[in-house]
Design a protein around this nucleic acid. Sequence first.
DNA 1: CAATTCTTGTCGAATTATTAACAGGATCAA
DNA 2: TTGATCCTGTTAATAATTCGACAAGAATTG
Lengths: 222, 222
Amino acid sequence: MTLRGRKKGETVPQGVVGRLPVYFRYLTELELAGVERVSSAQLGEALDFTAAQIRSDLSYFGSFGQQGYGYNVAELLDQVKQILGIKQKYAMVLVGAGNLGKAIGSYEWFRAEGFEIEAIFDVDPHLIGNRHGGCIIRSVDELTSYLKEHPADIGIIATPKAAGQSVCDLLVEGGVDSIWNFSPTHLTVPDHVLVEDMHLTDSLLRLVFRLNERRAGDGETD
Amino acid sequence: MTLRGRKKGETVPQGVVGRLPVYFRYLTELELAGVERVSSAQLGEALDFTAAQIRSDLSYFGSFGQQGYGYNVAELLDQVKQILGIKQKYAMVLVGAGNLGKAIGSYEWFRAEGFEIEAIFDVDPHLIGNRHGGCIIRSVDELTSYLKEHPADIGIIATPKAAGQSVCDLLVEGGVDSIWNFSPTHLTVPDHVLVEDMHLTDSLLRLVFRLNERRAGDGETD
DNA sequence: CAATTCTTGTCGAATTATTAACAGGATCAA
DNA sequence: TTGATCCTGTTAATAATTCGACAAGAATTG
């Protein structure tokens, strides 16, 4: 078992990180469907990747398959969970209790997989004090003092664009060093802080660009 | 003006497509702030890209800057809008009026930029008939007949995992060939159909993976 | 048990993406 | 106007990623 290129400090390529959750999702479906074994060719077929890519991706972390057999679904799923780090719990705080914040806060999957939203904050006095899920919505003024008492692994920013950076600064100051950002703005953070962006607008614009690219391509003669 | 590699049928690299919306977003901010000119170095600094990359990206579509000056913000923004194709309107249908669907349906930015949600569908009898935004929520049974009368450019899938593929099939059958998918499943579609995925779960898992990668890295001695 | 069929993990080639460097030209200051 | 500075668009080099191919080994069949 060589763990290709995974010497100390070496990071896993972006593309691999992007595909791991896809594998996780599909393997979960397979296990639920009672499928016992699967080959890289079958995975590739179902997920629109090449078989070589899937084998190559997995080989960054070890050898989980068997020649002539493929992968045992349950076992591979377990390994992928291990790799992704979802065998432990994570404490999250959510800032922004608007429509999007509420949608995120009601997403059952998080709790089921050990991602616990432990507190919700907003600036709107009409929302503060309301319950949502198991949480009372607190004033964002309390964010710093809350974090002092209850450290969080992940901060979720679901505010409008204008508030994004300042909320981010509060979170970072409060010791949160992993940020899941739904606010449509580019966040500036210190080096040790991770930001994962979830920009609805960007995603839609990518779709529209490709839509137009396709339409333009259709009109061409050669 | 060479339009690097943009001969007939050639597609723009993934990375470039991914960054265009970021440029759009930031240029909009700059214009709003009254900034008149900007250089690739400044853009890069603000958005964490190299200046070379930004110039290289833009050069796929033309020459929009001026030596010794940089880019005129308003003009470049206009060009980027042109490139992305957001100077026209798009008709969208939204399937799924749960928490996430409602959040998407209430996102003001869409309407402001010409993305019009023209109809909303769901399976839940409790929701059908309700108003949301300007739309009455209809039964998903009416989706096919609706699309026959009102063709849509983009279909938004905001259903649970289980319904994702079947709703997708209905949309495709109804002539929708660009799909914005929030349902946490991999959609299988014909070649001519575009899918842009917006998987909350995948995004969170990527963040968690990198979080653990960092934690592991911190503990290393050499 | 031997022969055949599968399928992995890995290597190296090919492709794709990023970046540093620079020529050419505009701007700016005096 | 002149010289110094600035900045683009492009090219060439570098880096990263993807993919086909294959040796090696397990499973399966007769």
